[in-house]
Design a protein around this nucleic acid. Structure first.
Lengths: 113, 113
DNA sequence: CTCATTTGCTACATATTTAGTAGCAAAACT
DNA sequence: AGTTTTGCTACTAAATATGTAGCAAATGAG
């Protein structure tokens, strides 16, 4: 079965053939560096090259693909200052933000084993 | 470069060479069906076969891999009733839960374009 | 201007991940 | 004792990500 490349609500995605919104964003955000990009853009606009550096030298192929996907999804956009979070992207970031704290706790407990 | 298969805090993962916890769980949860499994287990314990059905006939290979990863990560465990969320898994679910509502709104706005 | 740099990105070859199908051994019914 | 269900492995094909090279357009310096 061939899967859509752009995760779109209502269309089958990696993780949901019916395209349930929650699964669609998890497909989108789960792709490599997608979260890293959003996390970073929360600090302000960034150019392609700068994002690349920040993302530990992600390959330009992947970065470009990710940027296009996130743009189509309405989470980021390109301005004169570079790529930026849209309002929707910012809201998403706020929702996901608490995960950072939880993840640190989780990391400790995992490493204890 | 070869990447660890099991996303582990402190070790390089898809999305972070330094293994920052937040990136590690996004790697983990971003893999196909990982979220679907957690989402479903929130309704109670489930057997392998039942999970498979729920997950739109995910291939057993992938399901098994995911289950192992989530188990090592301490998010799920196997009991007499089948696979279940651990307490940590449940907490994670609670954090992620609000995303569901946001995603529905987001889906609407995306489809309007 | 004009030459050198930087930026955003494409091409391409390789490696890793996922999907999809078949089927088997052990446990649970009947 | 025989059938069904369950948890899972093996294997092949398709999709995704990585890593390197490099080019055309925009920017900056002299």
């Amino acid at each position: 079965m061939s899967m859509n490349s752009q995760p779109t609500p209502g269309k089958p995605v990696r993780g949901s053939k019916t395209g349930q919104p929650i699964m669609v964003i998890f497909d989108l955000l789960g792709r490599s560096w997608a979260m890293g990009i959003i996390w970073h853009l929360n600090n302000g606009p960034s150019t392609f090259r700068r994002l690349q550096e920040y993302c530990e030298n992600i390959s330009p192929t992947t970065l470009n693909k990710r940027l296009k996907e996130l743009t189509i999804a309405g989470l980021i956009e390109r301005t004169v200052d570079g790529y930026t979070l849209t309002e929707q992207g910012l809201e998403l970031f706020k929702l996901i933000h608490p995960l950072g704290k939880w993840a640190k706790q989780w990391a400790k407990s995992v490493n204890q084993k």
